[in-house]
C-alpha cells in the first residue's frame, strides 16, 4: 500500500515538474497566458526550471522509496516519458489547467 501512495505521488510530482519545465519555454508560456506577446522574464524562466528539476528529483526520491533502486530508476524514467506526453496533451486540449502554476510564478517574478 505504501508503494502505491509513493507511485501516485511520484506521478503527480513528475507531471508538476514537466509542466513547470514546459512553462519555461516561451512558446508554451504564451499558450497558457493566451497573450501573443507575453514571455517569461529570465528570472521567471530560471525559477520555473529550478522548480521543474526539483520536482523531478522529488519524484525520483519517491520512486526510490517505493522500490528496489534498480527497479525505481526504470519506473522513474518511464514516468518522465508518461508525464511529458501527459503535459503535451494538457497543453493541446486543456491548457487552462496550467494556469494556477503560471500564476504562482508570474507573481514571484513580476516587478
Amino acid at each position: 500500500m505504501v508503494e502505491v501512495v509513493c507511485w501516485i505521488a511520484a506521478i503527480f510530482t513528475t507531471m508538476m515538474g514537466m509542466a513547470s519545465l514546459s512553462l519555461s519555454l516561451p512558446n508554451h508560456w504564451r499558450q497558457v497566458t493566451g497573450i501573443e506577446t507575453s514571455q517569461p522574464t529570465p528570472s521567471q524562466q530560471n525559477a520555473l526550471r529550478i522548480f521543474g528539476y526539483l520536482s523531478l528529483f522529488v519524484s525520483l526520491v519517491l520512486c526510490l522509496a517505493a522500490d528496489h533502486p534498480t527497479m525505481a530508476v526504470l519506473v522513474w524514467v518511464m514516468l518522465l516519458a508518461l508525464a511529458a506526453k501527459g503535459v503535451a496533451m494538457i497543453l493541446t486540449w486543456r491548457e487552462h489547467w496550467l494556469k494556477p502554476l503560471l500564476l504562482m510564478f508570474s507573481r514571484t517574478g513580476l516587478n
Binding site: P26, H28, L91, T92
Partner: peptide, 9 residues
C-alpha cells in the same frame, strides 16, 4: 527542443 511539448491537431 524549444517547443518540446507541442501538438497542434
Amino acid at each position: 527542443f524549444r517547443e518540446f511539448f507541442t501538438f497542434r491537431p
